[in-house]
Design a protein around this nucleic acid. Sequence first.
DNA 1: TATATTATGCTCATAGTGAGTATAAACCTT
DNA 2: AAGGTTTATACTCACTATGAGCATAATATA
Lengths: 288, 288
Amino acid sequence: MTHKTLYPTDIITVLITLGETSPQLMLLHHDQNSPSLEGNHYSLQRSLRHWVETLTGCSIGYMEQLYTFAEPQKGGSSTTTPHIHITYLALTNHLPLSCHSHLYRHFPWEDRRSKSGNQQLENFIARIRLWADERTERQSRIATAFGLDGLPWDDTRVLERYELLWESGLVPRIPNEHVDANTPNLRDERRLLATALARLRTRIRYSSAIFDLLPPSFTLLHLQQAMETLSGRFMHKPNFRRLVLHQKLVEETGRQDNSAPGRPAKLYRFCPSAAASCYLGAAFLPLE
Amino acid sequence: MTHKTLYPTDIITVLITLGETSPQLMLLHHDQNSPSLEGNHYSLQRSLRHWVETLTGCSIGYMEQLYTFAEPQKGGSSTTTPHIHITYLALTNHLPLSCHSHLYRHFPWEDRRSKSGNQQLENFIARIRLWADERTERQSRIATAFGLDGLPWDDTRVLERYELLWESGLVPRIPNEHVDANTPNLRDERRLLATALARLRTRIRYSSAIFDLLPPSFTLLHLQQAMETLSGRFMHKPNFRRLVLHQKLVEETGRQDNSAPGRPAKLYRFCPSAAASCYLGAAFLPLE
DNA sequence: TATATTATGCTCATAGTGAGTATAAACCTT
DNA sequence: AAGGTTTATACTCACTATGAGCATAATATA
C-alpha cells in the first residue's frame, strides 16, 4: 500500500448580506484551529453551516459549495504540494457582527448603477482593447465578457472580467490589502470574491435565493432594490412587479410599509410553493 | 506556528463522449501514483487536461471543475480526517480507448426517451410518494425533482432525483459494482456521476458545449440527436432547426451527408463567433 | 385644496416558442 | 420511367413573455 498524497486544506465560507448600496461580505476561515467538521459531503455542509451560525450569530439561508482553489505554498516551487481551499457561499438576511466589507469596493466596475463604476469600466475597456491589440482570441473574450460588439452585458460574467483585467495588468496582481484582519492566506482573494459574486448573481436570477437576503416581510420595491444591488443594474419597476406577481412568488401580508413618503406600499412575504421554477432575470433597464 | 490540517486528496476526471443512445463516460483517477500537477488553480486545470489527453489519446474540449467531495476514510469514524476528491468534468468528441460505460446504465430513469426508463420512473414515483407519506417537506422536494403537481420535468435536476431515491432507499445505498477496474475509492460513485450529468445537461443548454462532443462537421439531425441523448428527451425537429439557425450557431460547409436514406442533409460546422449567447433549452417535445 | 411622491395598474408592439402542416430532394421498387 | 418511401427543409398560426411607456391611486405636506 502506497502513501496517500496529503494536502494542507482549509474551508473558506463567503458569507453575504445585503447592505444599503452594496452586498456585504465576510470571510470565515475554517482551519486547524477550528473544531473539526463531520467527514462526508452530506454532513460537511450541514456542520459547516452550524459552525458559521454559532460563530457569527446569524441564521444562514441558501448555501452551496463554490469552488476548490489550489495554490502553491508560500516559498515553494510550483510543483510542491499546493494548498487546497474549499470554498462555500452562504447567504443571511441579518448579521449581528459588523466586521464585513462592501463587495463593490473590490469591484467598482461591477456596479453599473453608479456613475463612477461606469466610468472606471469605460476606462478599463479602452485600455484592455489596447492590450488585446489585434489578437482575435483576446478580442472575442473581451467582447463576451464586457458586452461589446453588439453582445449584451451579462452581469454574471464577473470572473471572466476579473481574469481579463488581471491578465492585462489593469488590476494589481499582488493585492496589498486584505478584506479583514483574520483573512485566510489565499494569494488572490479577489478571485474568490469574483467567483462568489458570479455565483450569487446566477442564483438570484434562476432561483429564489434573493429571499434569503431579505427580511420575512418586504415591499416590492425592497425586493427590486435587492435585485438591483446584487446584479448591479437598475430594473424597470412595472415590469419587475409583473414578473414577480405573475409567478406568484410572493403573497400579501395584509400590512403596509408607512416608513417611506408617498403612497404606502403593501408588505409581502415569500411564497415558497412557487419557488421551484423561479426566474427573475428579466425587466432590467438598458445600460449607458 | 501550528500544524496545517492535512487531508488525503485525489483528483477524479469524468470524461464524457457521445455514444449511440447514451452518453459514455470514463473515470480517470489522479492520485499519488500519477505525475504531480502544477500547483495553482490557473495551471492545475491545464496540466490536468494535458495529463488526461496523453493518458487517453483524446483531445479535450470543454472542461470545468465539478465539485469537491469529502468522505470518511475507510474504517474511520465520522470525525477522522476525511478523504478529499476534487472532481472535474471533461468533454471529448473522440475517445480511442474503449473502457468506458453507458451513463444511463446507472440512471435508466434519466432517459425519458426509452419505454423502460419511463416505466422505472413511474414505478419510482409511486413508491417514493409512499415514502414521503404526508410530510410536505418531502412532497415538495419530490414534486420539483420529478416534475409533478403541474411542475415541469427539469432534466438538469439529476442530483435532486438521485438524492431522493437514495434517501428513500429505492436505489441500493451501497453499490456492489464499479464502473471499471481502476475506479477510485469513492464510496458512492453514482453521486459523482449524477453531479456530472446534471452539470453536463446545464452546460449543453446554456453554452455551446454540445459542439465539443460532435465531429467538426455534422448534420442538424446529428446535432439534435446529440442534444436528445444528453438531455434524455426528444425534440421537435422543425423548432430545433429554427432555434439553431436563428442563433447563427452553425454555418454550411457546402457538403452533404449521403450515408442516410432519404434526402441528403447538409453538413454544417460550428460557428464560434455566435457562441457567446448560445441557448438550446427550447424545442423539447412534451413527455409521456 | 393643491402638489409632491410613491405605489399600483394598464396598453401596445414585438420576439420567442409550441404545435402542426407543406414542399423538396434523394433513393427504391416495379 | 412512374410511383412510393424516406428524410430534409420551409412555412404558418396562436400564444406567451418581454420591453417600453403611460395612467391612475393613495398617502403626506404645504
